[in-house]
Amino acid sequence: EFTQISGYVNAFGSQRGSVLTVKVENDEGWTLVEEDFDRADYGSDPEFVAEVSSYLKRNGGIKDLTKVL
């Protein structure tokens, strides 16, 4: 089950073990991109978060400006 990723309007994530599946949706709710990120592939949590965040930004993730990150 996908849940909204904090700080984004149209990005959602689903966690299974160490694998986080993220997706970005358009205004109609269609999935634009979907990608798996395995936490085990990264040396640290900040590196993992930075990679996921960068992916979302590159692929149309819209920041939720009503929330302070």
Rank of each mutant, 00 (worst) to 15 (best):
K23G: 01
V22P: 00
N10E: 01
Y55I: 02
S54H: 09
S54A: 14
V49N: 11
V22K: 00
Q15Y: 15
K67Q: 14
D27V: 10
R58I: 08
V9L: 12
Y55K: 03
G7Q: 05
G61M: 06
D64S: 09
Q4F: 08
K67C: 15
Y8D: 03
E47T: 03
L65A: 09
D36P: 05
L56C: 06
R58V: 07
N10Y: 07
K67D: 13
A50P: 00
V24H: 01
V52Y: 05
W30V: 14
A11W: 03
R58K: 11
V22R: 01
V33H: 11
G13Y: 14
T3F: 14
A50I: 06
T3N: 08
D27L: 12
G29Q: 04
L56I: 13
V24Q: 00
E28N: 10
V33C: 15
W30C: 15
G7T: 04
N10T: 05
G7I: 06
K23N: 01
F12C: 09
R58G: 06
V22L: 05
G60E: 02
A50V: 05
V9Q: 07
L20I: 06
K23Y: 08
Y42G: 01
E25L: 15
Q15V: 13
R58M: 10
Y42C: 04
D36L: 09
N59K: 05
R16Q: 07
D38S: 03
I5V: 06
S44P: 02
I62F: 07
Q15M: 14
I62C: 08
L32P: 03
T3H: 11
D64V: 11
Q4L: 15
D38T: 02
P46S: 15
K23R: 15
G29W: 03
K23A: 03
N59W: 14
V52P: 01
V49E: 14
L65E: 12
K67I: 14
D38C: 06
R39A: 04
G61Y: 05
N10D: 01
G61S: 05
K67W: 13
V9R: 09
A40R: 12
G17R: 02
G13Q: 13
F37D: 00
L56E: 01
V68W: 12
S18E: 02
L69Q: 13
L32R: 05
V9I: 12
L20V: 06
I62E: 04
F48C: 04
S54T: 08
V9N: 06
E34H: 08
I5E: 04
F2D: 04
N59Q: 05
E47H: 05
K63H: 09
S14F: 13
I5G: 03
A50K: 11
K23F: 06
A40V: 07
